[in-house]
C-alpha cells in the first residue's frame, strides 16, 4: 500500500481537487442505482407471502440503517485520524458525515416504525436493536451539538472527536443485538458467510439500493467536506486560485 499517496491526499488542496472531481461521478451513479433499485424493489419484486406489499419498505429501511452505521464508523475513524495526525482534512470529513448520518438514522427509525405498525401491531418496542439505533441517533445529535457549542475550532474538533470515538462501541452492539438477544426485530437476511435467506428477485434490488446509497453518501460527503475544508482554509493561497 502506497502510504505516500495517502499523505498526498491528506493535504487540503489535493484533497479538495480530488474530491471535487470524484463527486459528480458518485452522485450520478448513486442516483442511477437508487432509481433502478427502487423500481426493482417497488414494482418488479414479487409480493412476500407473509408480509404482502409492506415488505417493500425493506428497500429503504435497510440501506438507511446500514448507512447510518457505516457513516458513524466513518466518523469515528476520521476522528481517530484527526486526533492522531492532527489533520484538518480528517476533522472536516468527520464533521460533514454527522448530519448525513443523523438523517439516515432518523430515516431508519421512522421507516422501521412505518413497517412495524402494520406488521407487528406496534410502532416501537424497547428491544435491543431499536434501542441501540436510537442511542446512535443521540450520539450523532450529541456530536453535532457539541461541535456547535464550542466556539474555538480546534477545541471543538477534538472534543467532539472524543464523543465520536466513545460511541463506536455502540456499533457492534447494534449489529449483533439480533444475534445475542431474542428481539422483535428480525435477524439478518444477508450475511457474509451463508447464502442469503431471501430469494433472488427480492435480493437484487436490495443490493442495488445499498450500493446506490453508498455512492450517494460518498457524493454528499465529498461536497460537504470540500465546503468544510474551504471554510477552514479560506485564508490560504491555494484557495485564491479556485
Amino acid at each position: 500500500m502506497n502510504l505516500k499517496a495517502i499523505y498526498k491526499y491528506g493535504s487540503p488542496p489535493n484533497f479538495y481537487r480530488f474530491v471535487t472531481k470524484v463527486e459528480p461521478w458518485c452522485l450520478y451513479f448513486g442516483l442511477l442505482l437508487i432509481l433502478i433499485g427502487s423500481a426493482g424493489g417497488l414494482f418488479m419484486a414479487p409480493e412476500d407471502y407473509q408480509m404482502g406489499d409492506a415488505f417493500r419498505i425493506i428497500y429503504f429501511h435497510v440501506p438507511s440503517a446500514y448507512l447510518s452505521m457505516s457513516a458513524y464508523a466513518t466518523m469515528g475513524f476520521a476522528s481517530i485520524i484527526g486526533i492522531v495526525w492532527r489533520s484538518n482534512v480528517a476533522f472536516s470529513v468527520a464533521k460533514s458525515v454527522a448530519p448525513f448520518g443523523a438523517l439516515m438514522t432518523a430515516t431508519a427509525l421512522v421507516t422501521g416504525m412505518l413497517w412495524g405498525k402494520p406488521m407487528w401491531g406496534t410502532a416501537w418496542v424497547w428491544d435491543a436493536r431499536l434501542t441501540s439505533e436510537f442511542i446512535l441517533l443521540l450520539l450523532y445529535l450529541g456530536y453535532i451539538t457539541l461541535h456547535a457549542s464550542i466556539k474555538e475550532q480546534k477545541r471543538a474538533d477534538r472534543a467532539a472527536s472524543l464523543v465520536a470515538i466513545l460511541g463506536i462501541i455502540n456499533l457492534p452492539i447494534i449489529h449483533y443485538s439480533v444475534v445475542w438477544w431474542n428481539t422483535l426485530h428480525q435477524a439478518s437476511t444477508i450475511s457474509k458467510l451463508d447464502s442469503p435467506s431471501i430469494v433472488g428477485e427480492m435480493l437484487w434490488p436490495l443490493l442495488v439500493m445499498i450500493f446506490g446509497y453508498m455512492f450517494f453518501f460518498v457524493a454528499v460527503i465529498c461536497r460537504a467536506s470540500s465546503a468544510e475544508v474551504l471554510v477552514r482554509e479560506k485564508r490560504s493561497n491555494w484557495v485564491k486560485e479556485i
Binding site: 434501542t131 442511542i135 446512535l136 443521540l138 450520539l139 445529535l141 450529541g142 451539538t145 457539541l146 457549542s149 464550542i150 477545541r155 472534543a159 472524543l162 464523543v163 466513545l166 460511541g167 455502540n170 452492539i173
Partner: peptide, 26 residues
C-alpha cells in the same frame, strides 16, 4: 468525562444530557 468535555461552555445542561444519555442507557 461529560463534565470535563463541556467545561468551557455556558449553560451546558442540555448538551450534557444529550451526550450522557446514549452512554448511560445500557
Amino acid at each position: 468525562f461529560t463534565a470535563a468535555i463541556t467545561l468551557g461552555i455556558r449553560y451546558p445542561g442540555a448538551l450534557m444530557t444529550l451526550i450522557i444519555t446514549p452512554i448511560t442507557l445500557p
